[in-house]
């Protein structure tokens, strides 16, 4: 890992987004548990309460359901709240408000009202934290029409997609991953506001042999695997999805049309997950003759996160597994 004192890391990029939003837009405020002593959220919210005041950086009681409703209700009046869940697992207590209220508000009221609220949830796992402190539930939320779901991988996206999420008129689930907080870039360029609706998957590495598709930390795994495979003569194309709902698979389809091989990597569970969705969406859009090998997916096994260290090492996908899967795909060629 790079020296965090040089450049800007992922957590600091999120902090920069908050500072930009709170300084630029008076209707933006943020709320959640622990925001006046934000050690739960790494370096991503340090001193915001001191800079912008405790009326706009609101520390709340332990009431996920109702504080979430509180953010939604304020958004209906034109505010742009960011509600923070330092650990995604606890957000499940707010499911009714996110899924039944925010995501459906506009549709069920005939497009006459909308909830421009941002749910910022954090995937925070490893370190023997176990089943209820480790989950990556993005696929659940991506299943819900009306809820945009954003998963930044790059340091710049960590800042720019949070700003885009808050400026978007729809409810947005912004998910960052603590395992990315150490990633650094030399210097963040000045903010350019992006329209979230225009954001598409990005090709992070160009290659001709196999397409690796992922979001968030799984892109990090794919990039490392791609670097490891280069000396072996395997050229991986790595696609960072960035926005997983609505999911734009066109860039993935274009890539697989070129490489003929697809591996989807996801930090969530296998069944009904993001990796399966990517594979299905690609396969149904390509003629069967294009594929050189059956697509593969790398996901968590369908089990809760264990606590014990050796089991944890078995549980999470590694760079070596991604590289090996890519090798196996590249060893296959369509016959006939």
């Amino acid at each position: 890992m790079d020296d965090p004192r040089k450049g800007t890391n992922y957590g600091e990029a999120i902090l920069a987004a908050y500072e930009y939003l709170l300084a630029t837009y008076p209707k933006v405020f943020t709320l959640g548990q622990g925001l006046w002593s934000p050690w739960y959220v790494g370096n991503s919210m340090t001193n915001l309460d001191k800079k912008f005041g405790q009326a706009r950086v609101i520390d709340t009681p332990i009431s996920e359901l109702s504080t979430t409703g509180m953010a939604i209700g304020a958004s209906l009046l034109g505010y742009r709240p960011i509600i923070v869940y330092p650990r995604m697992d606890f957000m499940i207590l707010a499911m009714d408000q996110i899924v039944n209220q925010a995501a459906k508000w506009r549709h069920m009221l005939g497009g006459q009202s909308h909830a421009p609220v941002t749910f910022r949830s954090i995937i925070n796992r490893g370190g023997e934290q176990g089943a209820q402190h480790s989950q990556a539930l993005h696929a659940w939320f991506a299943h819900v029409p009306g809820l945009r779901v954003v998963m930044p991988y790059t340091v710049q996206d960590a800042r720019d997609l949070l700003i885009a999420a808050v400026l978007c008129d729809d409810p947005v689930m912004y998910i960052d991953d603590r395992w990315l907080y150490g990633n650094v870039i030399d210097a963040l360029p000045p903010v350019t506001e992006l329209r979230l609706v225009d954001q598409r998957p990005e090709v992070r590495r160009v290659g001709k042999d196999v397409t690796l598709v992922a979001a968030s930390f799984s892109v990090h795994l794919a990039m490392q695997a791609a670097a490891a495979l280069e000396p072996e003569g395997i050229a991986c194309e790595v696609i960072d999805l960035r926005v997983i709902n609505p999911l734009d698979v066109a860039p993935v389809v274009a890539s697989v049309a070129k490489t003929g091989r697809l591996c989807a990597i996801d930090g969530g569970w296998r069944t009904c997950g993001l990796a399966g969705e990517v594979i299905a969406a690609v396969v149904e859009r390509l003629p069967v003759s294009v594929l050189q090998a059956p697509p593969r997916r790398l996901t968590l096994p369908d089990a809760p996160a264990p606590s014990s260290k050796p089991l944890e090492e078995l549980y999470y996908t590694t760079v070596a597994q991604v590289a090996q899967t890519a090798r196996e795909l590249c060893a296959m060629r369509r016959v006939g």
Binding site: G69, G73, N100, L109, S113
Partner: peptide, 22 residues
């Protein structure tokens, strides 16, 4: 707005009250 999740709209009303306060 109204909707039929029992108690579901109460937290949203709390948020509207927060907006009114602001």
């Amino acid at each position: 707005g109204s909707n039929p999740i029992v108690g579901g709209v109460v937290p949203v009303a709390v948020g509207a009250a927060l907006g009114n306060k602001m």
